[in-house]
């Protein structure tokens, strides 16, 4: 039982990180109907933004502390939001209305560009991520060990999800996002500047990816320019699993993959861990091709 709970908590922590990344894939898909394959690299940039910001923030705020941790988190989110807007503006917007394959190949190009530029600028060797938040001792109840870092991951994710839900459901721009994802022409007829809403969507998705990058680096403190590839791929799988275009689906998909991975590596063998996401995906798509919470409309990328 303890072992079970332990794996569940480990899985939920990693799953929340995947969920945050998956939201960006699914939001962009919902609005532009394309998969932004560079999204995993924005996650990587989030971690590196944190890496370079941490010493600067340490000069003004006591570090490690909750305050400095949050400051690094928000600053990295802002930086990546800007990066996301720039990527959309210069790589994707000129291709609007072009065949999907063109945009898809461009996205892969942007991804490779970010990875190689990352290796060039940051260096290819892994860097150790500084401790932003003190490692609070958490009571070990009956052999169960929950780290404070895991609690931070879960609570930050929870807060971000509440904030996202508020933005999407209760604000004007959120309503415009939903309207646009249903019908861009009709949204334009309401006076919505679709370019601004698309930029905003990229900003939002990239900020969440940055948060995921920081949370990931807090838990697995070795970061390198290729660190976005695998989590990015798994998060993409999570988004498809939950039903691409569906926000709660992305979260659900992320958590399912995180938890399944934890159970498989805990009970069976960690050798298979990275293949799990894909196994789960195939299994669920066989039963429900549009994903767990997806609607019928299926569009191939």
């Amino acid at each position: 039982m303890t072992e079970f709970l332990q794996q569940l908590i480990n899985g939920l922590a990693f799953g929340s990180i995947l969920a945050l990344i998956a939201l960006g894939y699914t939001m962009v898909y919902g609005i532009l109907r394309f998969i932004n394959f560079a999204h995993g690299d924005v996650f990587m940039l989030g971690a590196f933004a944190g890496f370079y910001l941490a010493p600067k923030i340490a000069r003004v705020l006591p570090t490690p502390s909750i305050g400095s941790g949050l400051a690094v988190l928000f600053a990295a989110m802002l930086i990546c939001a800007a990066i996301g807007v720039v990527i959309e503006r210069f790589a994707y917007r000129p291709l609007r209305g072009r065949p999907k394959l063109t945009v898809l190949i461009t996205a892969i190009g942007v991804s490779l560009f970010l990875e190689y530029t990352g290796q060039f600028v940051f260096g290819a060797a892994p860097k150790s991520f500084p401790r932003l938040i003190p490692d609070y001792p958490i009571a070990h109840v009956g052999g169960l060990s929950v780290t404070s870092d895991q609690i931070i991951v879960l609570s930050v994710t929870g807060l971000l999800l509440v904030a996202l839900r508020f933005i999407v459901l209760k604000t004007k721009i959120g309503m415009a996002m939903r309207a646009l994802s249903f019908n861009p022409e009709a949204a334009a007829l309401m006076g919505v500047n679709t370019d601004i809403v698309i930029s905003f969507t990229f900003a939002l998705g990239s900020a969440l990816a940055a948060a995921a990058g920081i949370l990931f680096a807090i838990n697995y403190p070795a970061i390198d320019p290729l660190m976005g590839i695998l989590p990015g791929l798994k998060a993409f799988v999570a988004a498809v699993l939950g039903g691409i275009g569906n926000l709660p689906g992305a979260v659900l998909g992320g958590l399912i993959i995180g938890v399944t991975e934890a159970f498989v590596s805990g009970y069976i063998s960690s050798t298979y861990r990275d293949a799990i996401a894909f196994g789960v995906l195939i299994l669920i798509l066989l039963v429900k091709p549009s994903g767990l919470l997806g609607k019928k409309e299926v569009e191939k990328v």
Binding site: K172, M175, A176, R178, A179, S181, F182, N183, E185, A186, A187, L189, M190, G191, V192
Partner: peptide, 22 residues
Amino acid sequence: PEGRMIFVNLTVMENLQMGAYL
């Protein structure tokens, strides 16, 4: 527009609010 193009995933009220977007 032809075919109405209402936002089927939004409520009636939200559709009207979209109309007043500006």
